[in-house]
């Protein structure tokens, strides 16, 4: 291999279960390959590191054809919780950690976790609302500086 990836910066912008997991898996996988990794949580993706919300991330059952559910069924109250539980139990079977555990695990690998300042301001949050693993609240400019020289993945 003549060319290898040395650094990735991954943006997590979605707050659904299926929006957050791929980014976390890619981040963790990058670290296990020895790639320097930053995660930037923005907009609804910030829920992944929100103290009171990150244990309650839901699978989206509306407008998600991948679930192969009847469209009307997706909107029935409680369906999202049921489908989330089902998905979580399947993930547990193959030893995929829960989102809070995954966040801690990724921080332990030495990856940098950052929250988007615009989002924090927009939702009226502060650093105290975010889990301890978040190192800093940064601007988009800071993010680009941090990502310089590496690859950027937007999810």
């Amino acid at each position: 291999m003549s060319e290898s990836i040395e650094k990735v910066s991954i943006v997590i912008s979605k707050g659904s279960l299926e929006g957050i997991y791929p980014a976390l898996i890619m981040a963790n996988g990058a670290r296990s390959e020895g790639i320097a990794t930053n995660l930037f949580f923005t907009f609804f993706g910030l829920d992944a590191v929100h103290r009171r919300r990150h244990e309650h991330i839901k699978l989206s059952t509306v407008g998600n054809p991948g679930l192969h559910l009847a469209t009307w069924l997706g909107g029935v109250p409680g369906i999202s919780s049921v489908m989330t539980q089902y998905m979580e139990s399947k993930m547990d079977k193959i030893d995929i950690p829960s989102i809070p555990e995954f966040i801690t695990m990724i921080a332990d690998t030495g990856a940098g976790l950052y929250a988007c300042k615009a989002t924090v301001d927009l939702f009226g949050l502060s650093k105290d609302d975010l889990v301890d693993e978040v190192q800093e609240i940064i601007t988009v400019g800071d993010f680009y500086n941090m990502a310089a020289g590496g690859q950027i993945i937007f999810t």
Binding site: R31, S32, E33, G34, M105, D108, T109, G110
Partner: peptide, 17 residues
Amino acid sequence: VPIKELYQLFPKGPAKQ
């Protein structure tokens, strides 16, 4: 061995190294 320590011991990827 905790994950944090594994990365300190093998900085370029514990499982791989």
